[in-house]
Design a protein around this nucleic acid. Sequence first.
DNA 1: TTATTTTTTTAGCCTTATCTAATTTCGTAA
DNA 2: TTACGAAATTAGATAAGGCTAAAAAAATAA
Lengths: 220, 220
Amino acid sequence: MILTTAEENYLKAIYHLSDEGKKSVSTNDIAAEMKTKPASVSDMLRKLGEKSVIEYRKYYGVHITEEGKKLALQTIRKHRLWEVFLVEKLNFAWDEVHEVAEELEHIQSPLLIQRLDAYLNFPKFDPHGDPIPDEYGDVRSRPRIQLNEMEIDQSGQIAAVKDSSAAFLRYLDKVGAYIGARIKVLDKVEFDGSLEILVDQKKTLFMSKDVASNILVLQS
Amino acid sequence: MILTTAEENYLKAIYHLSDEGKKSVSTNDIAAEMKTKPASVSDMLRKLGEKSVIEYRKYYGVHITEEGKKLALQTIRKHRLWEVFLVEKLNFAWDEVHEVAEELEHIQSPLLIQRLDAYLNFPKFDPHGDPIPDEYGDVRSRPRIQLNEMEIDQSGQIAAVKDSSAAFLRYLDKVGAYIGARIKVLDKVEFDGSLEILVDQKKTLFMSKDVASNILVLQS
DNA sequence: TTATTTTTTTAGCCTTATCTAATTTCGTAA
DNA sequence: TTACGAAATTAGATAAGGCTAAAAAAATAA
Ligand SMILES: [Mn+2]
Ligand SMILES: [Mn+2]
Ligand SMILES: [Mn+2]
Ligand SMILES: [Mn+2]
């Protein structure tokens, strides 16, 4: 099955929304994610349904099919490999890669991706800590917990960020939080859920619950 | 001026056709180059004319404007830089790069191209020997002559190929002709214009006039 | 269970890029 | 200087992807 760029983008959005544990994904949610109107989504769902990459029952939201999942994971694989390339080889900052990767992921060339993967030494994670699916669509996912859900005195390593917006990533740069950093929860404020964190055994950091909820931790 | 992917492709074709010393470029020639129909070309010429990247007088062909030339050269620059990347970094053969570069050249990110250029060490020529315009659109072109137009006993270096088709490039690989090879014309057959060439002072090669006309030489 | 609100779909329109068929214009040969 | 053939343009369709406004269906509240 060959998809257009627009179809790939929609399918990726549906995959990501499905991944949040929902039974089915709504038209409105897709429209919000894609920054299009619900009417445009309805139209696209019909097309994706005809191509059997989603299961679509009018008025009842969509489910991604196995084939759809495979295709979405291929696009995600390409996106994340390009992000690694941009950061590792072209010295992009991790907050500068998303938009460009959003375009690069649609280049059609299996050879290109295979070679890029080898050239980057078969990376397993992208610059935001997200796992890179292999060429068969398999993702090795590790159990990660949101930082705001950790208890006092628990420790771990920053594994990934949920929000990849430039604003959030630059904030993390500024306070010295990075993928792989060792952290420990020193204190949690009852009132607003904000936290005091020890980073790399030396630096203390205060952050809101909102910030913490966008940091994923590998517990140890 | 921002162009769509289709507009960029047309403008590049017009630039290349203009470069062949013609006064003006015809609708039919553009259609042949783009593998579209003349009717589609007429429509696109109107649009490109409105954007002032070409000068278009109905029924009299087109001239590219200074602004159009600049934009075309930017696309060509991107195309050739990506070709260098594919060959130098991802080990593509020189006959495998064209189609992928045809897609990659449309990625919109000045930072990406600037970084790619630096990463590749500011290459001056692409894998087919074609010069890479600088970021201002300047091309340093060297005087090159078609191999079939050289006289017996003259020598030089293969500088570029006119035809970048996979079939032609693989033929050159097979006979051991490559960009940079030192060559000398040993003999020319009056009857059909075919040539006998000495490559790298050791290997003798026979080639048709047709093949020779697609090899550009830097005379010495 | 009925009425209202929210969600989703449909209808109709736009733009870009293509096509085929019909028409117009150009250049040239008689 | 006209008539004819080639080249180019226009007219009218189609397909993808988007929009707004209207209609329909589902979900929720009364
Ligand atoms: Mn994308
Ligand atoms: Mn990422
Ligand atoms: Mn192209
Ligand atoms: Mn080239």
